[in-house]
C-alpha cells in the first residue's frame, strides 16, 4: 500500500486487522509488545523525572508565594518549545542516546506538572491554611497535612495532562534512533507501508487512553474523599 491515498475507512480497518493478525509483527525485539513496553517505559520515566523536579518546586512557590510569577512565566514559555526541535538539537549537541531524547520529553512534561501543583496549592482555602497556622502547625506540617492533600486533585490533573502530551510525543524518540511505537510508525513511513503507520497511530492512541484511565483511577484512590464530595457539591449547586 502506498502512503499517498486510500479508499476510506472500511478498507483501512480491514488492512489494519490484517497487519495485526500477522504473527511476525508480534515477535522479537521489533515486535508490537516490545515496542509498546518501551514506549510505556519512556513515558513513565519522563513523567516520573518531571514529577520529581516540578512537584517540589510547585509546592515551594505555592507554599511561600515567592517567585510564582517568574516560575509560571518560564513554564508557560517552556510549553512553546517544540519537542521535535528540542530533541534533534539535543542529539546534535550531546550525541545519540536515551538521555537527550528523554530530556526533551521531561521538558515537555514539566510545565503541566508545575502549573498543576502550583495551582493546587494556591487553590487551598485560605481559611484552612489560617486554621492550620492557628492550631500551631509548623510550616512542614502545614504543607504535608493541609496543603498537599488539598492540592492533590489539581496536581494529579497536571500529571495527567503531562502524561497525555508525553505519550503523544514519545514517537520522536524513534526519530533519533530509539525505539517505541514511533519506530513502527516511522518504519511504515520509510517503506511506504501505510497500514503499519495507522496501526502504530492507533496503538499510541490506545496507550494514551489507557494511561489516562490509570491516572484517573489513581486520582480517585489518593484524593481525600472530603474533597471529592466538596467538588461534586459545588458543581451540583451551580
Amino acid at each position: 500500500m502506498d502512503a499517498r491515498g486510500r479508499k476510506g475507512a472500511p478498507e483501512l480497518i480491514v488492512n489494519m486487522i490484517a497487519w495485526l493478525a500477522d504473527p511476525a509483527h508480534w515477535r522479537g525485539p521489533e515486535g508490537v509488545p516490545a515496542q509498546m513496553l518501551l514506549h510505556l517505559y519512556y513515558c513513565v520515566l519522563s513523567v516520573g523525572v518531571a514529577v520529581v523536579i516540578a512537584v517540589p518546586l510547585g509546592l515551594y512557590i505555592g507554599h511561600t508565594g515567592r517567585g510564582g510569577v517568574f516560575v509560571v512565566g518560564v513554564s508557560n514559555a517552556m510549553r512553546a518549545l517544540p519537542t521535535l526541535g528540542l530533541v534533534t538539537a539535543l542529539v546534535m549537541f550531546l550525541g545519540l542516546g536515551v538521555v537527550p531524547a528523554l530530556a526533551g520529553l521531561v521538558i515537555l512534561a514539566v510545565p503541566a506538572v508545575l502549573s498543576g501543583t502550583h495551582a493546587g496549592v494556591r487553590s487551598v482555602p485560605t481559611e484552612a491554611v489560617d486554621a492550620a497556622r492557628g492550631m500551631g502547625m509548623t510550616p512542614w506540617q502545614r504543607l504535608w497535612q493541609v496543603e498537599l492533600p488539598n492540592a492533590l486533585p489539581l496536581l494529579i490533573g497536571g500529571v495527567r495532562s503531562a502524561m497525555l502530551q508525553v505519550v503523544a510525543t514519545a514517537a520522536v524518540a524513534a526519530y533519533v534512533g530509539l525505539g517505541g511505537l514511533g519506530r513502527i510508525l516511522l518504519g511504515g513511513l520509510a517503506v511506504g507501508e501505510y497500514d503499519q503507520m495507522a496501526v502504530a497511530a492507533l496503538l499510541i492512541a490506545l496507550l494514551a487512553v489507557f494511561l489516562d484511565g490509570v491516572l484517573a483511577a489513581l486520582s480517585r484512590w489518593v484524593v481525600p474523599r472530603g474533597l471529592v464530595l466538596a467538588n461534586t457539591a459545588t458543581h451540583d449547586g451551580s
Binding site: Y194, A198, A201, A205, V209
Partner: peptide, 14 residues
C-alpha cells in the same frame, strides 16, 4: 486524550 500525531496519520486513511 487522542494524540494529534495519531490523528495526523489516521485521518487521511479514514
Amino acid at each position: 486524550t487522542i494524540p494529534s500525531l495519531a490523528l495526523y496519520v489516521l485521518i487521511p486513511g479514514l
